[in-house]
């Protein structure tokens, strides 16, 4: 999904809410931000790689090309899904706003 809404410094107040609960009930303001960043098109989209099921994860990036292996980003290993969510949110926030969240 390509969204119209542009994330800006005005959205700064949702960062804390996200970090407190990456998955679950969210305020409309946070949901609008998430619709933008989670709606990223398939090329270079982040995914969660289950390296040790339910214990350990890394990030990956889809290529958008069928049959091409998912690019595995092995440098960071997560022991909770929420931590991986926070890291992806942080990276995307920075890409969208040019500032650290």
């Amino acid at each position: 999904m390509h969204t119209v809404y542009k994330i800006s410094a005005n959205d700064q107040n949702v960062v804390e809410e996200f970090n407190a609960r990456p998955i679950g009930h969210h305020s409309p303001a946070l949901q609008r931000v998430l619709n933008v960043i989670r709606g990223q098109p398939v090329r270079d989209k982040y995914v969660l790689i289950c390296t040790k099921p339910h214990q350990e994860w890394t990030l990956g990036k889809l290529t958008g090309e069928r049959g091409k292996p998912v690019r595995l980003l092995k440098e960071q290993v997560f022991t909770s899904v929420e931590d991986a969510e926070r890291e992806v949110f942080r990276r995307r926030w920075e890409r969208h706003t040019g500032t650290k969240g």
């Binding site: 999904m1 709606g39 289950c50 990956g60 889809l62 998912v70 991986a84």
Partner: peptide
């Protein structure tokens, strides 16, 4: 669905987990 299209993350409100 998780690798062909980008919709899963929006539908599921979380990163799409991929196993082997």
């Amino acid at each position: 669905m998780a690798t062909n299209a980008g919709l899963i993350e929006l539908l599921s409100g979380r990163l799409a987990p991929l196993d082997k």
